[in-house]
């Protein structure tokens, strides 16, 4: 995984709510030294660390209780996997955005977490500045993509397109040629700025394309869950509330 390509892309100046008020962050990691170091770095960088959690269930509980802007989530917490935490948070309909940090970069796990709603992913070996930039970007609602994640997302769309059960006819779930092109360039290490130059589009448009691929992937995942529910008769109407 690269740890050097992201700063120029994700490291846009904090914008929107990020600059207007302090960004509130919750750190979930089972490694105490790492967790404290991350929390200290975030505080030094001007973030408001509203809490820490050392396992999956407490990460979900404290995120629901504190409603932070960003949850910095270790992929392999005891108790719940990263994607399970993301699912639990999505069910609670929180505004919190999830940035996945992972030491081992287990590919399938990263993909599952991103499909379940995480908006970014970074390896733990990333530099401090890169990490701070990524938290800013996540708070601003931008997807944080490494080349590795872009390769995973690209591969997942290819798999879905080849799978007979996928609702491929729906254009809302398919990548546009431009989005595929942008993902390809991200996956081969170009920064958003370089991609903008290469494709004669604005940095903002590149960002939007990347964000859109992530949205489609997550939408795809929800569509599949609904299909599964329908296929298994889980759509029985709820009894009317008295």
């Amino acid at each position: 995984m690269s740890r050097t390509t992201e700063p120029s892309s994700a490291g846009a100046a904090p914008s929107g709510r990020g600059s207007a008020e302090q960004v509130r962050v919750l750190v979930a990691d089972d490694h105490p030294m790492w967790r404290d170091a991350v929390a200290r770095d975030l505080e030094d960088a001007g973030f408001d660390v509203v809490g820490i959690a050392d396992d999956g269930p407490s990460a979900v509980r404290r995120t629901i209780a504190t409603r932070p802007d960003v949850l910095v989530l270790d992929l392999n917490l005891p108790g719940l996997r990263g994607d399970e935490v993301c699912v639990a948070l999505a069910e609670a309909a929180l505004p919190t955005r999830v940035l996945i940090l992972s030491a081992s970069a287990e590919q399938q796990d990263v993909l599952e977490a991103v499909k379940s709603g995480a908006s970014g992913y970074l390896v733990k070996s990333a530099a401090r500045e890169e990490f701070i930039d990524a938290v800013h970007a996540t708070a601003a609602g931008k997807a944080v993509f490494t080349p590795g994640l872009a390769g995973l997302v690209l591969g997942e769309f290819r798999r879905l397109a080849a799978s007979p059960s996928a609702p491929t006819s729906d254009p809302a779930l398919q990548l546009t040629p431009r989005e595929t092109e942008v993902l390809l360039l991200v996956a081969t290490g170009l920064s958003y700025k370089e991609i903008a130059t290469e494709l004669f589009i604005s940095h903002r448009t590149v960002q939007n394309h990347v964000q859109s691929t992530l949205n489609k992937l997550q939408l795809h995942n929800r569509v599949q869950l609904v299909r599964y529910a329908l296929a298994h008769g889980l759509d029985a109407p709820q009894p009317p509330q008295g």
Binding site: T5, P147, G151, L154, R158, G189
Partner: peptide, 21 residues
């Protein structure tokens, strides 16, 4: 120089892109 390798499974073909800066 850094390099990036991207592997894509296109169904019938596999594409490997090797880019350097």
């Amino acid at each position: 120089a850094k390099a990036w390798v991207l592997i894509e499974d296109l169904g019938t073909d596999v594409t490997v892109t090797v880019r350097d800066d």
